[in-house]
Structure formats: C-alpha cells, structure tokens
Simulated scan of single mutants.
Amino acid sequence: MKYYYLEPEVSGGPGENTIMNSSVHPPFVTRLHYEFDGWLGDSIVTSFPCYIVTEDAREKILESEFSGITFDDVEVTTSELFEEMQPDQRLPPFAWLKVNGDAGHDDFGIAKDYRLVVSERVLDALKPFGISNALVEPFEAS
C-alpha cells in the first residue's frame, strides 16, 4: 500500500468557541469551532492541529471503513472576510475528522512532523469530493 502526505487547504482557523490547551505541542483540542475566512471547495480543510471534512466525505470515509480516525461535531461559522469575499457561498455541513492512526500503517495517521498521512485508498475515495487545492506528495516511512 502506498501512503501520501495530504496537506489540505487552510480555509480559516479556530473560532472563539474552540477549547484548546496550547501549552502542549501539538495543541490539544477538546471542542472545535472552525471559522472560515474563505473556501475553495475542497472536501477536507485544516487549521493546525485539526481537520474537518464535508458530510459527504465523512459518509464515504465511514462506508469505506478506513482505519485511524474518529469523528466528532464541529461548530462552523464564517468570518466578516468570508462574507465580504464570498457573499453567495453557502457551506455544506462539516464534521471534525480526528486522526489517531499510525502514519504509514493506518489509512489515516500523523507523521512525526505532524503532517497528515493517508493511504492511497483514502486519496482515491476523497478525489471525487474535491481535494484539488491540497498538496499531495509521497510519504516515506523512516
């Protein structure tokens, strides 16, 4: 099985309702509020150390029984910048993708440098939902 770094678009960041312990690295998030500043349409977006996916992509991930992840609720809002730059853009529902797998072993994992690593099966499953703005490059386990 081949594995890849998947670096999704950063569409915003933690909103004011996020609960995060930033005294540890990576920060430990117990409640996620993602505030969008813009969105190019990809099914997975990030703001370190969290990832969120569209509900359609979540359903595909669950259906495929990929390893290394769980899901949780995420509060999604848009910033003034988003409203100004994309006033007609409506966001689909999103879910918090919590990665807990081993990079290069599970379908979803976090590398030692804290980047997301996914299996080729995950890439193939996500492509129809949109990942064209993400950086994808081969992962070599060390």
Rank of each mutant, 00 (worst) to 15 (best):
T54C: 06
Q86W: 15
E9Q: 05
T18I: 12
H25M: 15
V45G: 03
V122G: 05
T77P: 00
A134K: 06
K2C: 15
P87A: 05
H33Q: 02
T30G: 08
A95K: 12
V117E: 06
D42L: 08
D88F: 10
F48P: 13
T54L: 05
I69S: 02
M1R: 13
W96E: 02
G15R: 14
S79A: 12
M20I: 11
E137L: 08
R90G: 00
E120N: 12
T46R: 15
T77D: 02
Y114P: 06
Y114Q: 08
D113F: 13
N133D: 01
G130F: 01
E137I: 04
A141R: 07
F71Q: 02
R115P: 00
W39Q: 00
V136N: 01
Y5V: 07
D102K: 06
M1T: 15
A111K: 03
I131P: 02
G101Y: 04
G68F: 02
V99P: 05
L32F: 10
V24K: 14
A103W: 02
M1S: 07
I131G: 00
V118W: 08
E65Y: 05
S79F: 04
R58D: 09
E83D: 11
A95V: 07
D113R: 15
W39T: 02
D56H: 11
A95Y: 00
F108G: 10
I69A: 00
S64W: 12
D106R: 09
F71D: 03
E55C: 15
E83N: 13
S23T: 15
V10M: 09
P26W: 03
F82I: 00
M85A: 14
A134Y: 05
V122S: 06
T18G: 13
E7P: 01
A57M: 08
A134D: 03
L91S: 03
V24T: 13
D73M: 01
E59A: 07
F129C: 14
T18A: 11
G12T: 08
N100G: 14
W39C: 01
H33F: 01
F108T: 07
K2Q: 14
T30E: 10
Y4E: 04
P26T: 13
P14D: 09
S119I: 06
L135K: 13
D42N: 09
L81A: 04
G101L: 08
S119R: 03
F28Q: 13
G38T: 09
L32D: 13
G104D: 00
T77N: 01
A125V: 08
I69E: 03
G104F: 00
M1A: 15
T78V: 14
R31F: 15
F48L: 11
F36S: 03
P8H: 14
L6E: 00
G130W: 02
S79H: 09
T70D: 14
L40W: 10
Y4L: 07
L81W: 01
S64T: 08
C50G: 09
D37W: 02
K112Y: 04
D42H: 04
T18Q: 11
G12M: 09
G38I: 04
P8S: 05
Y114W: 12
L116P: 02
